[in-house]
């Protein structure tokens, strides 16, 4: 069996705030192998963006890793020297952001950006420019030579996201993290970017980690999905199992809430009663228990991780065992 490209074990991250540390991640585990598309899905505040930032070693200064490890090909990248971390980013790992506009410098052309992103390569300028042009063609931009001379603001949102994908793939990274890659886009543009990402899979050898709050995006793109709630992974399953045989009560409730998931019109949309727990003082037992329909006396104790099948795990007392 191949060693995992990316392995996150028991990762805990806390943000320092005026009112005390906020436990954004509490013992998160994740494994991603080459050729896989991993989905991380959850609502705001579940820790999915913190997880992405930890993978890229881009946590803000207020965040502190309080435990666990992020291993890339077996090496813990959190303990690497800053210079070695920088060397990994861009070459071994790359990221696509929600709003690609913020990832580009407004006074540089697309060509400047794409050549500059290859600064770790020793190839001559013309070779870098040629590579940039090839990448633009690869992501479906029909006129790469024109695009190279454009400034970021001269492109539409969909084109910018295509350029961002081209930029991320420039150095052939083994891990590609896409944080809400289509959230800022219109429906028809979103469909095109999803189509593009799916087509890229056929040539791309690494792993793609897609972070999204949109269940439809995850269903369209991913092979395997992690569901997060209140800083923990509460369920992990193959995509088909997740959407058709979800076990965790939170996953089931989340799926039920999505208006796109039921074809018939309903007078009342399902919701999840209650609120997210305060992550300054996370509950001792199951985080979801206060909002859970299945809760029992056992749920005051932290639930164990239970494998319901070799590829399907769940963090719950009631459905796990």
């Amino acid at each position: 069996m191949k060693p995992p490209l990316l392995e996150i074990t028991d990762l805990s991250v806390a943000y320092q705030t005026d009112t005390g540390p906020v436990m954004a991640l509490r013992g998160a585990n994740l494994v991603a192998r080459a050729g896989e598309v991993i989905g991380i899905v959850g609502e705001s505040g579940c820790g999915k963006s913190t997880l992405a930032a930890a993978v890229m070693n881009l946590l803000p200064a207020t965040a502190k890793v309080t435990g666990g490890a992020v291993r890339f090909l077996g090496q813990d990248i959190l303990t690497l020297a800053p210079q070695a971390q920088r060397a990994l980013r861009g070459t071994a790992m790359a990221m696509i952001f929600q709003d690609p506009m913020t990832a580009f410098n407004p006074v540089l052309t697309i060509g400047d950006h794409l050549v500059d992103f290859q600064h770790q390569s020793r190839a001559p300028y013309r070779a870098k420019l040629a590579r940039a042009r090839d990448q633009l063609a690869l992501v479906g931009l029909s006129d790469p030579d024109v695009i190279l001379r454009r400034y970021p603001h001269q492109l539409s949102g969909g084109m910018r996201q295509r350029v961002a994908i081209a930029a991320a793939l420039l150095m052939n990274p083994q891990v590609l993290v896409a944080d809400e890659p289509t959230t800022a886009l219109d429906v028809t543009t979103e469909a095109q970017i999803l189509h593009l990402l799916r087509n890229l899979r056929q040539t791309y050898q690494g792993t793609i980690v897609v972070i999204s709050h949109h269940l439809g995006v995850v269903a369209e793109l991913c092979d395997r999905v992690y569901v997060m709630y209140a800083g923990q992974v509460v369920e992990q399953a193959m995509v088909d199992d997740l959407f058709h045989a979800a076990r965790h009560p939170y996953t089931r409730a989340l799926l039920a809430c999505d208006p796109a998931s039921f074809p018939n019109l309903t007078p009342v949309l399902p919701t999840i009663p209650g609120r997210l727990p305060d992550l300054r003082d996370p509950p001792k037992g199951c985080s979801f228990a206060p909002r859970c329909a299945l809760r029992s006396a056992r749920c005051t104790v932290a639930p164990p991780w239970a494998q319901v099948s070799p590829s399907h795990g769940v963090l719950c007392h009631e459905v796990g065992a």
Partner: peptide, 25 residues
């Protein structure tokens, strides 16, 4: 038609193989 077809559905069994609509507004 294109707009309705473009909406990603939360069901991996209903993945679209083709593209609903090309180009941008």
């Amino acid at each position: 038609q294109s707009l309705i077809a473009a909406e990603p559905l939360p069901d991996p069994r209903k993945r679209r193989a083709d593209l609903a609509i090309s180009g941008e507004i």
